[in-house]
């Protein structure tokens, strides 16, 4: 029973991390039909620069961590906005080329990060409390899991409120459904493209800082390996659906934890099979609308 609770809660924690990457991917795909292979790079740079600044402010302190998170968000958002404005926008409506450009950016930035920070993972210092555990129903839950879950929940709430109660949120929701009709109402959707990139980049950058807390290190590859899981989550949840991304993040991560524990470390394999299964039964994902 203890083990089940532990796996469940750590699974939700890992899911929180997936969600921070998948939310942006899903919104970007939903609105722009671009599968963003550079999204992992947003995470990595957010994590690395967040760590660089945070440790100078206060290595292993709450102040340092909070600064890291803010820097990570800012860096992720900025990187994403530049990507959209400089590369994606010029290839308007040429989806294959847009995907290819993000592939190139992803590959190139990982190489650049390796050049700057090296190929090996760098161990990071944690806030003392985050190194401890809290006992829940007999299971000793690592404290950093609580941080991941609460931050991801805040991000989810913030995005939901933004989408529901602002004009840009309205435009984005409408655009995910039918972008052509949004332009045919006289609205310049390109501004909201930049905006979803900024939101997705900020969430990913924040995810980079939290990934460094979760794994206890930062590395030039962190984003790329996380990206594959985020893709799986996004597709299972339904491309374009934020709720779908949230649900699938948790489902996938929990499934992965349980399979790793009970089925001899087959977590990665199980979720890949789950993806294939979901796609064959419901090609649009759990919460997705009909794909165009």
């Amino acid at each position: 029973m203890n083990t089940v609770i532990l796996l469940l809660i750590t699974g939700v924690g890992l899911g929180a991390l997936y969600f921070l990457v998948a939310s942006g991917l899903s919104l970007i795909y939903g609105l722009m039909h671009v599968l963003n292979f550079a999204h992992g790079a947003f995470l990595t740079l957010g994590g690395l620069l967040g760590w660089e600044v945070g440790r100078r402010v206060g290595d292993g302190t709450w102040a340092g961590l909070i600064v890291s998170m803010l820097v990570g968000m800012a860096v992720g958002a900025l990187f994403a906005v530049v990507t959209e404005l400089v590369f994606i926008r010029r290839l308007y409506n040429r989806h294959i080329e847009q995907v290819l450009v993000t592939v190139g950016l992803g590959i190139a930035s990982v190489a650049l990060f390796e050049g700057i920070w090296g190929t090996d993972a760098i161990i990071t210092n944690k806030v003392p409390w985050l190194r401890g555990t809290t006992t829940v129903l007999g299971a000793r839950i690592p404290n950093h899991i609580w941080l991941l879950i609460s931050v991801a929940a805040l991000v989810l709430a913030a995005i939901v409120l933004f989408l529901r109660y602002t004009r840009y949120g309205l435009i984005i929701r409408a655009g995910v459904e039918n972008r052509t009709m949004v332009t045919a109402l006289g609205i310049d959707v390109r501004k909201s493209f930049t905006l979803v990139f900024a939101i997705g980049g900020a969430a990913a950058g924040l995810g980079g800082v939290l990934a460094s807390v979760y794994y206890g290190n930062v590395s030039a590859h962190q984003g790329q390996s996380m990206l594959i899981y985020a893709f799986i989550v996004t597709v299972i949840g339904g491309l374009g659906s934020l709720t779908g991304a949230a649900i699938a993040s948790v489902l996938v991560a929990v499934l992965q934890q349980f399979a790793n524990f009970y089925l001899g470390g087959t977590g990665d394999l199980i979720i890949v099979l789950a993806l294939a299964g979901v796609l064959l039964v419901r090609p649009s994902g759990l919460m997705g609308r009909k794909l165009s």
Partner: peptide
Amino acid sequence: DRIVRRGIAYVPEDREVFASL
């Protein structure tokens, strides 16, 4: 969007309302 903002309204075939809104 620029064309529409010059004052041309469009009522498309099949309505194309935003179903989830």
